[in-house]
């Protein structure tokens, strides 16, 4: 060390160690031995290998095999692919375009972390009612009341043969309801509108309360269809 440019620095260490051990010669010898064992000679093969790497790192082809950066690139690529897959699946799930079981699974997982993803729609697989009179002129099947907003529970969906009296005002009446079979109290209204209904209709059993209105409107639409 002292043949470099700082013999005074070596002396500083020796002096400080001498103060601690009391013997300058022992202090100097100890530091020399420590230095001798710290300086690590390199094997010729290792030296040549390192020099090759240095030349390759600065040469025209600087694609030195660097395992760490390669691992880092792989990790980044994997992360990006994973993120894209997650975003794509999430987008399709939010739009409800995934296949039914997958949609349900994604919905359940997302629900666990308080993200609202619609479940697969069971109504998609239910045939629409085909009863004559159910559909107004010019209306397509898609205009049927089953087309409710996602998530809304429609009590009448999937129940084309629902019982008279279940029908709320303004909704289609049952195709098989009978004119005049109304509960006491509002007979005139039910009777009058019911006469426009199909001739093959059977006496129904409208529940007391608001029977005539529901019945009558349903039949009115039905007869108009014809």
């Amino acid at each position: 060390m002292s043949d470099r440019d700082g013999p005074e620095r070596a002396d500083e260490l020796v002096d400080e160690l001498t103060e601690l051990v009391g013997d300058p010669e022992a202090a100097r010898r100890a530091l020399d031995e420590l230095r001798e064992h710290l300086v690590a000679p390199l094997d010729t093969d290792v030296t040549n290998h390192h020099l090759d790497a240095m030349v390759a790192a600065t040469g025209p082809n600087t694609d030195v095999i660097d395992l760490r950066s390669r691992r880092a690139r792989r990790a980044i690529t994997g992360t990006v692919i994973g993120a894209l897959a997650l975003v794509g699946t999430g987008g399709l799930a939010a739009a409800g375009h995934l296949p039914g079981p997958v949609q349900d699974t994604v919905s359940r997982i997302a629900g666990a972390i308080a993200i609202d993803i619609p479940r697969s729609t069971p109504g998609d697989t239910v045939e629409p009612p085909t009863t004559p009179g159910d559909t107004a002129p010019g209306r397509s099947v898609d205009d049927h009341p089953r087309d409710t907003a996602p998530g809304r529970v429609d009590g009448d969906r999937g129940r084309p043969d629902s019982v008279p009296g279940d029908t709320a005002p303004g909704q289609q009446g049952p195709p098989d309801s009978v004119p005049g079979d109304t509960a006491p109290g509002q007979p005139g209204q039910g009777q009058g509108q019911g006469q426009q209904g199909p001739p093959d209709s059977v006496p129904g059993d409208t529940a007391p309360g608001q029977p005539g209105q529901g019945q009558g409107q349903g039949q009115g639409q039905g007869s108009g269809n014809r």
């Binding site: 710290l38 240095m54 600065t58």
Partner: peptide, 30 residues
């Protein structure tokens, strides 16, 4: 400088001092 670099890395418990020495000198020349 490699003996100093390798000695420093070994004495300070680098896991693979020779590999790290190579990385140091690649960084130096770059």
């Amino acid at each position: 400088l490699a003996p100093l670099v390798l000695g420093y890395l070994r004495s300070n418990r680098a896991r693979d001092p020779e590999d790290l020495t190579s990385e140091v000198f690649i960084a130096v020349v770059r």
